[in-house]
Design a binder for these strands. Structure first.
Length: 270
DNA sequence: AACGAAACCTGCGCGC
DNA sequence: TGCGCGCAGGTTTCGT
């Protein structure tokens, strides 16, 4: 479920509930989720207290007493808060039990999510966070343009590349490029400075609005933590194949760009 | 360096 | 009803 707005929504909700809670026990049902020795991870994290919950790009960052736990939701990761008396469901892969008896449960049908644990002193300077580029709001046009002009990839691929710009995923890239009136297959080194400026501005506006509305909920019947986003009502092209473009009424087409399903108005976007 | 395909997983909707 | 295929809000890896 996660691009920046969804992860930010989860972050805010979790922080509300979990601040100052102390972890009493960890139950790991799908060991591959954690990128460390399970026993070490479990020992390390027990008795630490959640001091803050932050985010960088699409990564959630749990600030503990001594370590930072980095969680990436990938395609379908979700969190639920439950009581320790509730039965464990099929797709709940790790459960953090707090001293209060409340539990934080990670649910992930496709098991693509990842969890890293690194010391507070160095977690930002080592993978996975060290590779993550700034978000659109923190990137200046000049440096992004310089980056793009050196490459010969499609603008869609560039915007999906978290080492170039972070936070955007398939939905918000489509919406950003529609708003920018730029075709997703345009090559990055063919874009003008003005166009790059428009793309960054659009990305900002799209993300900001989506965060405001709690993200986008599509194709996910159960929303995590009872959080249901409302940005799906603001989508212009994503998932709109065959529907009229809101600007020119031309039917929206679906194509493949960089292996990803991509929605575009063939008239407006050039 | 760039591209495509495959991998990591599971479930759903569609056409036959 | 059942089966096979394609597809899914992400990212990495591997071969060309």
């Amino acid at each position: 479920m996660p691009e920046l707005p969804e992860v930010e929504t989860v972050r805010r909700t979790l922080k509300e509930v979990l601040m100052s809670k102390t972890i009493k026990r960890v139950s790991l049902f799908y060991p591959k989720l954690v990128q460390h020795d399970p026993q070490w991870f479990s020992n390390q994290i027990c008795h630490q207290t959640i001091r803050d919950i932050k985010r960088k790009g699409k990564h959630l960052i749990f600030i503990l007493d001594h370590d930072a736990m980095l969680i990436h939701l990938r395609m379908e990761g979700k969190f639920f808060i439950k009581d320790d008396s509730c039965p464990i469901l099929k797709h709940e892969h790790i459960v953090f039990t707090f001293e209060s008896g409340q539990e934080l449960r990670y649910h992930d049908v496709r098991k693509f999510g990842t969890i890293h644990l690194h010391a507070l002193e160095n977690y930002e300077s080592i993978p996975p966070l060290s590779k993550i580029a700034p978000e659109p709001k923190d990137i200046d046009v000049q440096s992004f343009y310089q980056l793009l002009v050196k490459k010969q990839i499609t603008i869609k691929q560039a915007l999906l590349d978290q080492t170039l710009i972070s936070g955007l995923g398939n939905i918000y890239v489509d919406e950003t490029l529609f708003k920018s009136r730029i075709h997703p297959t345009r090559k990055t080194n063919q874009l003008s400075y003005e166009e790059v400026k428009i793309i960054l501005k659009s990305a900002n506006e799209v993300l900001q609005k989506a965060v405001e509305l709690g993200g986008t909920t599509i194709r996910s019947y159960t929303s995590s933590l009872g959080v249901t986003g409302r940005f799906q009502n603001q989508l212009h092209v994503h998932m709109k194949k065959g529907e009229p473009c809101p600007i020119c009424q031309t039917p929206i087409i679906k194509m493949k760009v960089g292996g990803r399903g991509t929605y575009v108005c063939p008239e407006c976007q050039t």
